[in-house]
Design a protein around this nucleic acid. Sequence first.
DNA 1: ACTTGAATTATGTCTAGACATATTAGCCAA
DNA 2: TTGGCTAATATGTCTAGACATAATTCAAGT
Lengths: 227, 227
Amino acid sequence: MLGWEAIRAEVLRRIRARDWPPGGLIPGEEALAEEFGVARATVNRALRDLAEAGVIERKKRAGTRVAELPVRRARLEIPVIRLDVLGRGLAYDFQLLVDRMAPAPVPVAARLGLPEAAPMRYLETVHLAGGRPYVLEARWLNPGVLPPDPPDFSTVSANEWLVTHVSLVSGDIAFTAEAASLREAEVLGVAPGTPLLVAERTTHGTEGPVTLVRLAHAPGHRVQMVF
Amino acid sequence: MLGWEAIRAEVLRRIRARDWPPGGLIPGEEALAEEFGVARATVNRALRDLAEAGVIERKKRAGTRVAELPVRRARLEIPVIRLDVLGRGLAYDFQLLVDRMAPAPVPVAARLGLPEAAPMRYLETVHLAGGRPYVLEARWLNPGVLPPDPPDFSTVSANEWLVTHVSLVSGDIAFTAEAASLREAEVLGVAPGTPLLVAERTTHGTEGPVTLVRLAHAPGHRVQMVF
DNA sequence: ACTTGAATTATGTCTAGACATATTAGCCAA
DNA sequence: TTGGCTAATATGTCTAGACATAATTCAAGT
């Protein structure tokens, strides 16, 4: 019997073969269900999957059309740093370098949508892999949205605690290549100006902005994704 | 009536509230369906979605359990470079710098799973945004798996042609920060050693490895993702 | 010409029931 | 104890039919 994956494969084949050209409408679910001899729900499952992959675009009443330019999507799994390190077969450790309250600098407040100079908690942590510096984490935390039991971040990594104790709703991540600042060079043990892969993340919870974190990775770091 | 999104929200709430602790089994689909007064298919839809998000892990016969460490997933949309540039409100253009056949270097052949020194097509293209260098694209193409109508890559960007003419099955992307080589510095118009964000992609089609491409981005480039 | 509203239609979701499939637990034999 | 077979079970998928929802079309009224 034909399964939804077979339907998906056949639809994809026809799109690749230009049977159904980019931008064109494809037959409705009912028509496809009849053609393939399956229930409409099965066709729906297949088409929904293709829509998620960006191959087709679907709108009620308007029907389903082939995407003009197939946008490929890749998935990045953002691991807790400890597991990332252990997954590479190295011993993990971290050190809390800074933990203090400070007014949010303008760019930080702006990115999180908080008032300027709002009181925030600033944490600086260096994560170690096999005893060597792996990532320098600079984190701004919005104390207003945290659960009422503040842990000691010198024994529990903020990175890890947040994942399990704050329900994150949305966020974004950006990668850039930057020259190591004096501070970064010192902590990571490299020459100033060395190219570093920097990840900047903001996260928002149900009750507002939670944290902005900048991760400066040691040279040679690769961020890998599959699709 | 309760929809699958409501079910998903309630299950997520219970997980966050530690009603169902990390690593623990949650009730089966049938039990939840009865509790919420919906069909099992509706519960299945909700749980499948949570599994895709990495919140729970499901196995036949073994049941559904709360993921030990919630892995957050972000989605990267990989645009065709032309659209990426136009999307930033800049004029797009490109120049083909190199197009020749060459034996695959060892690391290239290894990454693609091809025999050493296999004959490949090597393309070097610089993409321009607003008249200024934006990306240097260095691409190794496996000529064995291409459709029989080779286009002229000096008028059609390889980047764009491949997306629409080869059915890609899988691939991976890796981002690194690297110091600009002499060649990269020259083409991009920056000083050698400048930190560059480099993306390296391999793609595989139904008939084998298709291409390996290295994109060296001009300084300041950001790769942005949401989750 | 312009706006409003209703009919139409394709996708979105749901139900109840069924069979498929993977995996585990338990049993039995070597 | 160990290996392998079997039965039990939770998830995976499918069907046929129904109603919900959004978006378009088109007609009517201003």
